[in-house]
Simulated assay, not measured.
Amino acid sequence: MSNVLINFHSTNTTSMAITQFNEVVAEEEKLSHECKQLLLSLPKEKGWRTPHLYLYQNFWCQPTEIQAIMSFQKHFQAKESDIVLASIPKSGTTWLKALAFAIVNRKPSAISKNHPLESSNPHDLVPFFEYKLYANDQLPDLSTMTEPRLFGTHVPFASLPNSIVKSNCRIVYICRNPFDTFVSIWHFLNKIKPRSSPSVSLEEAFEMYCNGVIGFGPFWTHMLGYWKESIEKPDKVLFLKYEDMKGDLSFQLKKLAKFLGSPFSVEEERKGVIEKIAKLCSFESMKQLEVNKSGKSIKNFENKNLFRKAEVGDWVNYFSPLMVDKLSKLMEEKLGGSGLSFRVFH
C-alpha cells in the first residue's frame, strides 16, 4: 500500500520528468542522418543539461545545436547592413539585444510608449541563428526582415559563415568576467535542465568549466576569437565588456550607437534619449514586464529564467579560496599576453 501511495503522490512530478526527458530524446531523434553520422566521429563529454556535449569545430555543443549551426553555416547569406550580436551564454546577451534593438530602431520622437520591447522579449526581436532561425532543420525566409537586420549567436568567431566574416556586416561581441559568467551559467542550467536529470553540483560544474566543457566553450577560446578580430578589424567587430557597461552605460551606448551607424545627435543627447534607452532596457524594467515573466522565446526555456540578478561580483558568494586561485591562474594562462583582462571585483 505504501508503494501505491508514494507512486500516487509523485505522479505529477514523475510525469513532468518523463515528458521533459522524452522531449530531449524526441529532439535528438529528429536529427538528420548527416548530423547523426557526424556525432559518431566527435569527442564527447558529460553535458550539464543534456546527456552529452560534443566537440564540434573545437567548441562544445549539444546535438541539436550542431545541426542548426551546420545549416546556418551552409545557408546564411549576410547583407552588408546586417548586425550580428555575439556572446558566450550568460554574459549579457539579453541586455545587449535590447540595447542594440532600441538604438537601431529609435524614431525621431525618441522613446515613446508602447515600445516593442515592452511587449516582446529581446530574443524574439533579435533572433538567434542556432536557437530560432535554423533550429529544427528549417531554412528561414529572411527576405522580409527590416534592415538593418539584427541577429544573435553564441557561435565562436572561427565558426561563423564565410558570408559574415567576408562581408562588411558588423559584429558586436559582449563578454563578462568569467567568475560571474560561471555562477550565472550554473544557476541557469540547473533551472532549465529536465527534472529527470540530477542537479549539477557547484564543484562538478566548476571542474567542467575550467576544463572548457561548457556550451560554446572553452570560454577563453570564445573570447579570444572575437577579441583578436576586434583588434585587427575594429570597424568590423566591437568588443564590449559587461562590467564596463555597468560602470558607465551612457559612454558605452554612445560607442555602440556610433559603431552601429546610428550615432546619437546633440539634440538627442540634450533630450535625454540615451538615458531613456538605458532605463527602457534596464534589468529592473525588463524583469517587471509581463512578456518576460512568462512565455518561451528561446526553444523551451522560460523567459523568467533569463533574469536573475545582473550583478557584478556576485561570484564572491559562491567561490571558495581554492576556486578563486584555480580560475585566476587559468585565466592568466589562457588570456595572458593577449591584452584581454578582467578586474576581479570583491
Rank of each mutant, 00 (worst) to 15 (best):
S2G: 06
N3Y: 14
L5M: 14
F8K: 12
H9I: 15
H9P: 00
T13M: 13
T14L: 13
T14I: 11
I18P: 01
I18N: 12
T19E: 15
F21L: 14
N22K: 12
N22R: 12
V24T: 12
V25P: 01
E27N: 15
E27I: 04
E29W: 09
K30Q: 14
L31T: 05
S32E: 09
H33Q: 14
H33M: 12
K36Q: 14
Q37G: 14
L40D: 11
E45D: 10
E45C: 11
E45V: 09
W48G: 00
R49Q: 13
L55P: 00
N58V: 03
Q62I: 09
I66V: 09
I66P: 00
Q67A: 08
M70Q: 15
F76Q: 05
A78Y: 04
E80I: 10
E80F: 04
S81N: 13
A86K: 03
T94G: 02
L96V: 03
K97V: 00
A98Y: 00
L99F: 02
L99H: 00
I111N: 03
K113G: 05
H115T: 07
H123E: 09
L125I: 08
V126P: 00
Y131C: 13
A135M: 10
A135I: 05
A135W: 01
D137T: 07
P140Q: 09
P140W: 04
E147D: 12
F151S: 03
T153A: 08
F157V: 04
A158E: 08
S159D: 10
P161H: 11
P161V: 08
S163T: 14
R170P: 01
I171V: 13
N177W: 02
N177K: 08
V183F: 01
V183T: 10
S184D: 09
I185S: 02
H187R: 14
K193C: 07
S199F: 12
S199D: 14
S201Q: 12
S201F: 06
E207D: 13
Y209L: 09
C210K: 11
N211M: 07
I214D: 00
I214L: 08
I214W: 00
F216L: 12
G217M: 10
W220K: 05
T221Q: 12
H222S: 05
G225E: 04
W227I: 02
E232T: 11
E232C: 11
D235G: 08
V237F: 02
L238T: 03
F239G: 04
L240T: 01
Y242D: 02
D244M: 06
K246W: 05
Q252I: 05
L256G: 02
L256V: 05
K258D: 15
L260W: 04
F264I: 07
F264C: 06
S265T: 15
S265C: 08
V266F: 05
V266P: 01
G272H: 10
L280C: 06
K287V: 09
V291I: 15
I298F: 02
K299D: 09
E302N: 08
K304Q: 14
R308G: 01
V312I: 15
D314K: 12
D314T: 07
V316C: 11
N317R: 12
N317V: 03
L322H: 10
L322T: 10
M323Y: 03
V324E: 10
K326G: 02
L327F: 00
S328N: 13
S328L: 09
E332Q: 15
G336D: 06
G337Y: 06
